[in-house]
Design a protein around this nucleic acid. Structure first.
Lengths: 101, 101
DNA sequence: GAATGATATCGACGGTTGTCAATGTGTGGG
DNA sequence: CCCACACATTGACAACCGTCGATATCATTC
C-alpha cells in the first residue's frame, strides 16, 4: 500500500472491511485453509465440522458469512453442499494490501 | 492460498485473525491508506482526525489497535505522535492470502 | 510554574459477533 | 409415504467492538 496513490474513499473502505471481516476470524481462516488445501479444492460441511471442533450449525453459519462476502462458492450436489474458493477473491484482497503500484 | 500446503493450525489462525481484525474496520483501513499515501509516509493524529470525521479519542483508539497488531509504528517527536506503517507488515498479511505455493 | 495544545486513557453506552440447542428444509432409500 | 441423513435457519445469550464525553498525561511557551 505504498505512497503515490490517492487515499481510500469511505464507501470503498466499507466494502473492503466487509470482506476482511469475513476472514478476520480464526475459525473462518481455518475453513478457507482447509478448503484450499484439500485434494479437490472443495469440501462439504461434514468434512469441516470435526477438524474445527465446532457444532454443525456454527460451521454452516461461518460458511454462509464467507459465501456472502464473495470468498466461497456453494454448490449443492445431492444431499451434500460443496464449498470452494471463488477464484481470485483472495488475491484481490491481497492486492489491496500490496497494491501501492 | 492454493492447495498443496498443509492446513492452518488453530494457534496460527488466532495470531493471523488478530492482525486481520485490526484491518477489518472501515476507519482503520482508511487510516492505513491515509498514512501510506501521505508524502512522508507518516502522519500525526491531528492530520487524521478531520478526513475521517471522527473524534480525536476515537482516532487514537484505532491507531493503538493498529500499533498493537504490529501494523503501525508510533514515534513521538515533541508534542506530536507520528504514525508510520511497519515495513513488510501488510505484505506478510497479503502473503497469507496468496501463499499457496 | 501556569497555561496551552496534542495525545492518551477511562467509563459508559448501543450495536455487533460467535456460539449453541432446537427446529426447519430437502433429498434419497426402503 | 416415511425414515434417515446432510445441511440451513431461528432464537437466545454472553462477549466483544466502535463511539463519544470527560479527564489525564506530557511537552512547549511565556
Amino acid at each position: 500500500m505504498p505512497s503515490g496513490a490517492a487515499a481510500m474513499s469511505a464507501t470503498r473502505a466499507e466494502e473492503l472491511s466487509r470482506q476482511f471481516k469475513a476472514i478476520a476470524d480464526p475459525n473462518r481462516l481455518r475453513l478457507v485453509s482447509l478448503i484450499s488445501s484439500s485434494a479437490e479444492n472443495e469440501a462439504c460441511v461434514c468434512d469441516l465440522t470435526e477438524p474445527l471442533d465446532l457444532g454443525q450449525p456454527t460451521v454452516s453459519h461461518h460458511l454462509k458469512i464467507l459465501v456472502d462476502a464473495g470468498i466461497l462458492h456453494r454448490e449443492k450436489r445431492g444431499v451434500w453442499a460443496y464449498y470452494s474458493i471463488v477464484p481470485g477473491s483472495l488475491d484481490a484482497l491481497a492486492g489491496v494490501l500490496t497494491e501501492p503500484k
